[in-house]
Design a protein around this nucleic acid. Structure first.
Lengths: 364, 364
DNA sequence: TTGAAAGCGATACCAG
DNA sequence: CTGGTATCGCTTTCAA
């Protein structure tokens, strides 16, 4: 429990000066410090279990190698934690550490979180949300390099770059998957329109019909909510007391929990999945989609990839800002702050086919 | 994007020395600095939007006001995030910030995480796990005040204190709940014995029978796993093709996902919940238990409370260590390092009654 | 009442 | 090749 060894301790033990210690331990010893001294220094460092005090380093280098992450409720809720995991993995690879502040959906805490993080001299800032949504970027967030993950700058000029999933394409590919199994009467249970995720997935669903030259039956799109019970009751509305020939043959859901409700309702009505009706989830929620009975076909959100992509891009900006301008600055065209990259990076979702989708029943 | 203002900037603007700024801004101005100067200093600070550089503070005070949290997979998985949320809330109240490192279940990364955190000069360390389990405490973790949440020191001497849920009592109260509804033939679907959570819950289940003066039917305890499909197949084994009078009337599950599987199986068999059979979950998983059809009766894990309790205790130790010994040290009895507290703090679970449990069917 | 100076731990420059 | 010294931003003595 005794205090850690400092460079001075090492120097004393090795009988040299602090500077020598610094040089040797940073690989700049050769040609500067006598080999014999180097040896002694290394031994002393090992003996004392020396490692430099990162706080002192931060002060001196004016960079903390800390990335601040503000989350709206990623920590508290069971969702989207993999965005942070992906981001953190990349940060760690680069010798950065992340500190996460969760506002638990209290928007008034945004600025405070950013302020706290800035006081801690973070080198960069990331904002992560549960579910795709527009973000009112907190003040001062742009004082250091910043990026958004799973949300996007709500200002028309979109100052802060963002990494988001390609929900439109996800919705479309989900629909195309069941179409490829022969389904034509396909319902969509779709969360709500409070966040852009559901509307975008619906847009993809519509575009699948358009591309297939099929009409879209708007009555098949139900914005019911996001939870199990919503899926259950939505399905009851779609199927209960409806003659078989007029039932949809497939139900697409805006997330996996809705799909649980759908299957629950099907079983209650004595229907089999996927023999009588095909069901698809969305998200590929850990320990849910794969473990369902039947295992859910779903559209996996690329959470880890999003986090990793966001952090990669952020660290590039951090480097760029800290390195004094070199080389290419004389390029014609001038100032471009973000080197021509679009402000929004789209990451594709991934179709996962399991057991809840099957061929359309004969005669439909 | 320009660098933040320093105390020197404030001093210059106010026409005083750095020391005066420091004094005033830390409330020690009265009696040391002229009121007029104080006013000017405060104005200057506000004008420059000054706030002290925490890194410099940390270096000077030899304390970072950072608590390091090592998690085995709390960040990555959808579970138990509320432990961290609870811990973080308490930390924030006390002006601390937490930095979380997730090892993603790779035990070999434990020591590295602790090392990294220690290099960052954290004032304290917490280890958080998904699901109760014994922990092989990483080396060096005891170089600063430390605590475990949802896990416990696997060494017989139990050096590091821990905060864990009272699983035995939880299991017992779950069983007592359905007993109070008249059930006597109660099955338990129980995860596995790889972690102590399921065995302890089973132990509670048994003790409920003992206290009620009823025999325990060991054939009713099935260690099937933790996921939806395990619940489904376990239930099938219990109910499918079994004559009604020989079926259990209630099924207790070691978590809420198992309960989903149970209900799924019941529906498939044409059984109603809770009319034909009562089902109970465990955990009160967010967006699952409450949203199920029917809404699940369950035993809520006190995650937030555990995190908060662990952090409260940890910060007390941090304070104690940093404050030089004052007053009471002369108390008789001497050294006691942990002021007599037991190393393991148990937090009770909370019974949540919803719609999946009901009176035992007539005649059973 | 105020300002000057010392140190927290590490690095990098620059004389020696 | 080496060791002294300034610096990062802040607090806290200590003299004036």
């Amino acid at each position: 429990m005794n205090r850690k060894a400092t460079a001075l301790d090492v120097a004393k033990l090795a009988g040299v000066s602090r500077s020598a210690v610094s040089l040797v331990l940073n690989g700049r010893g050769d040609g500067n410090v006598a080999l014999e001294s180097q040896q002694r220094i290394r031994e002393a460092a090992a003996a004392l279990n020396y490692s430099p005090n990162k706080i002192a380093l931060s002060l001196r280098n004016r960079q903390s190698r800390i990335i601040g992450i503000v989350s709206d409720q990623v920590v508290t809720s069971p969702f989207d934690g993999n965005i942070i995991a992906g981001a953190d993995a990349v940060a760690r690879e680069h010798g950065f550490v992340t500190v996460v502040m969760d506002t638990e959906l209290d928007g008034s805490r945004d600025e405070g979180a950013v302020e706290t993080l800035l006081d801690r001299q973070v080198d960069g800032l990331m904002y992560v949300t549960v579910g795709l949504r527009p973000l009112h970027v907190p003040a001062n967030m742009d004082r250091v390099p910043a990026i958004l993950a799973n949300c996007f700058d709500d200002r028309p000029e979109a100052v802060v770059p963002a990494v988001i999933p390609d929900e439109v394409r996800g919705g479309r590919e989900a629909a195309e998957h069941v179409m490829s199994l022969g389904h034509r009467d396909i319902a969509f249970l779709a969360g709500d329109s409070l966040t852009p995720a559901a509307p975008r997935r619906i847009e993809g669903y519509r575009s699948a019909f358009l591309h297939a030259g099929l009409p879209v039956n708007e009555a098949r799109v139900l914005q019911v909510g996001w939870d199990i019970d919503a899926g259950f009751h939505g399905t009851m509305k779609l199927l209960d007391g409806v003659e078989p020939a007029r039932r949809p043959t497939a139900i697409l859901c805006a997330n996996d929990r809705l799909a649980i409700g759908v299957v629950l309702a099907c079983y209650r009505l004595g229907l089999s999945v996927p023999q009588d009706i095909s069901v698809m989830g969305y998200d590929d929620e850990f320990r849910i989609a794969k473990a369902m009975v039947p295992a859910l076909s779903t559209m996996a959100l690329p959470l880890r990839e999003m986090g990793a992509a966001a952090m990669t891009s952020l660290l590039r900006d951090v480097d760029r800002q800290q390195a004094p301008d070199d080389g290419g600055t004389a390029a014609p065209g001038g100032k471009e702050p973000r080197s021509g990259t679009s402000a929004e990076t789209m990451v594709p979702c991934r179709l996962v086919v399991r057991d809840s989708t099957g061929q359309v029943p004969a005669g439909r």
